[in-house]
Design a protein around this nucleic acid. Structure first.
Lengths: 128, 128
DNA sequence: AGTTGTACCATTGGGTCACATGGTACATAT
DNA sequence: ATATGTACCATGTGACCCAATGGTACAACT
């Protein structure tokens, strides 16, 4: 498994990691059940901070591409290949795009949409 | 019609203006058909920049609280009183809140939601 | 001529957030 | 003992946005 992180790349490092691991799974280089290097070890090899690698692993696990088995290491998820295809990011972008479009058609200003958005994400329920 | 703008108030000046005009309409101080002072004149009286007043007027017109009749001045909208009640802001907040909740339940990170939001509002269609 | 609403341009100050870094600590495995 | 994934704390840098200010200009009304 060859992974390369380009510091000059505007794409965040943890995203580069995620993409390359997903690519390896899709290509078959990584098969379900295979063990992944530990967070600290991979951080050493790629000259990254362990936190950066941990972040990538955490997101990969949420997408069910890998499985963190506590203190027994991390492994490729059984359904990894399938779960690589469905992109949560795109789904999120589409959902938000639909809502934004609907609001705009109602005449709401982009400024107001932004303003309301920070309110919505900060858990503020609409005042009665 | 007495309007007071407090510069030390954290609430933006154009919002203070909007609120007070709506309040005057609701209270009956301003009746449908009444003429409003011109942008420049009101800006002078309140010692505001004309742009600030123009912004408030523009938003009030969108909410159908006032009617700008081009070069013939600005008047209170016939249905002003009713249109003051329905709050577009709340509707916006609720709509966005629903979407955010749905995304969160799908496991999407707040960070990712924010990130996708700027993409959505910048007119980026989800990559196929 | 003077005023109207509106549209551009640009800048300043303040705030929030993402990314990455660094350190420390924990309970549980080998 | 050593290594594991994970959790907390904190800092710095850069980017983006908002509110507000200021100036200029236009076409159309009184």
């Amino acid at each position: 498994m060859e992974i390369t992180i380009d510091i000059d790349n505007p794409v965040p490092q943890f995203e580069q990691l995620i993409e390359q691991i997903k690519a390896a799974v899709t290509a078959g280089t990584l098969k379900p059940g295979d063990a992944l290097p530990s967070i600290r070890q991979l951080a050493n090899d790629l000259e990254l901070n362990s936190k950066t690698v941990a972040k990538a692993y955490k997101l990969l696990e949420r997408d069910a591409v890998i499985q963190a088995k506590g203190y027994r290491g991390t492994y490729v998820h059984p359904d990894a290949k399938a779960n690589c295809k469905f992109n949560l990011q795109e789904w999120t972008l589409r959902k938000l795009g639909e809502t934004v479009t609907e609001l705009r058609e109602a005449g709401v200003t982009d400024s107001e949409i932004r303003n309301a958005f920070v309110g919505a994400i900060n858990g503020q329920s609409p005042a009665k």
